[in-house]
Design a protein around this nucleic acid. Structure first.
Length: 239
DNA sequence: GCGACAG
DNA sequence: ATCTTGTCGC
């Protein structure tokens, strides 16, 4: 059990699980995911973009909190941790979850919404990393991935703002969103405490002319910057 | 056996 | 994810 910070403080499960145990945990926790919006997403809210990167077996996570009304950055945080779990499709949260929670714990105040680079319920067991982080922090979350993990869909129209549904059998598990004309669409899905329509709206509303929503773009940039500085620091130390 | 497979 | 050179287009 681990205690993170006030707003993230919850009873957390162990992360060093065997694949079989991890799958069982996902199936169990997936039942607790709430697919209804806790709050009406409005302009008066903050959205935290979350992303992670790697360098020499060290995972780096970055969080950038953006004010949805003017898309201005209000807070940032980074964290690093040795990787302790391999990348296995469908179990990404066991690899990135620990560092991400560490970075989130450094924020001064809890964001109103988490936008995570990866899937939410558009997952084999309906429990992708966005759902996992949202559930553990009890903060509404959305999954916004650059490629799909599971599901079928029809290509949305080429114009920006076009969407189509991502389905798995008869179930709708997410949406395919063309955030701008003639770019590859992104895969949006419910993370936790949000419904699909609000998730799509939040993603489109936070896009600033680029394919990815601003919170995630900034988290991406920050994470890369962080990895570069640690790389040069290591280099100068050796010399 | 073959293709699919978040980051 | 990360490693990499050039290249097409606004």
């Amino acid at each position: 059990m681990v205690i993170v910070k006030k707003f993230i403080q919850k009873t957390i499960h162990p992360w060093d699980l065997k694949p079989e145990e991890a799958i069982a945990l996902q199936t169990k926790l997936a039942r607790r995911v709430i697919r209804k919006s806790r709050f009406r997403p409005d302009g008066m809210m903050t959205v935290a973009g979350v992303d992670a990167g790697y360098r020499d077996d060290i995972a780096h996570a970055a969080v950038v909190v953006v004010d949805l009304k003017d898309l201005r950055t209000v807070e940032k945080a980074v964290a690093a941790k040795p990787v302790a779990f391999p990348y296995v499709p469908g179990m990404l949260s066991f690899r990135e979850g620990p560092v991400i929670l560490k970075a989130l714990g450094k924020l001064k105040s809890p964001p109103d919404l988490l936008m995570i680079d990866g899937q939410g319920v558009a997952h084999p067991r309906r429990f992708g990393i966005a759902s996992h982080i949202g559930l553990l922090t009890d903060i509404p979350s959305i999954g916004c991935a650059k490629t799909k993990l599971v599901g079928d869909y029809e290509e949305p129209h080429r114009s920006g703002g076009s969407t189509s549904y991502l389905t798995d059998g008869k179930e709708t598990i997410g949406a395919v969103v063309r955030t701008r004309t003639d770019v590859k669409p992104v895969f949006v899905s419910i993370g936790h405490l949000m419904d699909l329509n609000d998730s799509i709206r939040a993603v489109i509303k936070s896009c600033c002319g680029y394919r990815l929503p601003e919170p995630i773009r900034r988290a991406d940039h920050l994470s890369r910057k962080q990895i570069k500085t640690t790389k040069s620091a290591k280099f100068t130390k050796v010399i």
